[in-house]
């Protein structure tokens, strides 16, 4: 494993706390920001991003360009604010600055991440289906250079309707990229519909297996299971790319947003913010 960057020693209950903190900070930002936030898809991937940034990945906020760092490509770029806040919790950015400047003229923090404006972000994304080809190129560099870091990407399940995803799936398999790991936020919702009603992705794991990928299926909101899945990843010098299909709920943690098409994106007035925070807190007690 990467020698000069150590992973945080976070246990499952600490990770659950960090996930809660992430969701709470997301909602607070949503309450302060006048515009629309992709809150549904942020909440569905909050646990995955917590797993990666607070547990799994070898990254160092003080050493952004260390060649031995693990790389992360947010293919579902519309979840940028969730990534910013996770990264802020890890020490990359200042949460208050994100809240105070989000979406404003001159801010580095916008709806989709821009690496040029925000060092620490590996790749500028936003248009769906671009992350896996980009991550494939980055993993190809690592593989052919004999380096042992990993390249992670996070896709939404909806965006795997893009043909470019499957082009890259072919290329990653053909080039034996065992250092490439794709997490999929399988929340089963597109913007305007439930995916299996409009686009039948199932049998979804079989599709990835047919493309030659190692498939791990996991409950994307069960932190212990996510940690176990991460720990079971093949070594970076192995020859088969891995996809971790995370069964998730869009809007997870806020009862009136869960599996609700109205909450693909939105903003929160004071009343809704209090309702959302109360729901989040209630869910934590119940768990």
């Amino acid at each position: 494993m990467a020698a000069t960057i150590t992973r945080p020693e976070t246990d499952v209950s600490e990770l659950e706390d960090l996930s809660y903190e992430l969701r709470e900070k997301l909602l607070l930002l949503c309450g302060e920001y006048d515009g629309s936030v992709h809150i549904g898809g942020d909440l569905s991937c909050a646990d995955i991003l917590t797993l990666l940034f607070q547990y799994g990945m070898h990254v160092d906020p003080q050493d952004l360009h260390n060649p031995e760092r693990d790389r992360f490509v947010l293919s579902k770029g519309h979840a940028a604010v969730c990534m910013y806040i996770t990264m802020a919790i890890r020490g990359f950015f200042d949460y208050r600055e994100i809240v105070d400047t989000y979406g404003q003229l001159g801010s580095a923090y916008g709806m989709h991440p821009c690496k040029v404006q925000l060092p620490g972000v590996e790749v500028s994304t936003g248009s769906l289906g671009h992350g896996l080809p980009l991550a494939t190129g980055m993993a190809l560099h690592g593989k052919r250079s004999g380096m042992d870091h990993r390249v992670f990407t996070l896709m939404g399940d909806g965006e795997t309707g893009e043909g470019s995803v499957w082009e890259a799936a072919l290329a990653a398999h053909s080039n034996n990229l065992g250092n490439l790991v794709a997490f999929i936020d399988r929340n089963r919702q597109l913007m305007t519909s439930f995916s299996e009603e409009r686009v039948k992705l199932e049998p979804y794991p079989d599709k990835w297996r047919a493309f030659g990928w190692n498939v791990i299926e996991v409950d994307g909101h069960d932190m212990a299971a996510l940690v176990q899945a991460f720990d079971s990843l093949p070594a970076p010098d192995s020859d088969v790319p891995t996809v971790v299909i995370c069964d998730t709920v869009k809007g997870k943690g806020v009862d009136f947003m869960e599996r609700n098409l109205a909450w693909h994106a939105g903003s929160l007035n004071d009343t809704d913010l209090q309702r959302a925070l109360a729901s989040l807190a209630h869910g934590r007690k119940a768990a």
Binding site: G129, G137, S164, A168
Partner: peptide
């Protein structure tokens, strides 16, 4: 051979992979 990639008929992936490689300093 270690710096050559033929992705087959996948132009989008080809350009995306090139961008990923450039992102790594190539």
């Amino acid at each position: 051979p270690d710096r050559f990639v033929d992705v087959g008929l996948s132009e989008q992936a080809c350009v995306g992979i090139a961008a990923g490689l450039a992102n790594e300093g190539n």
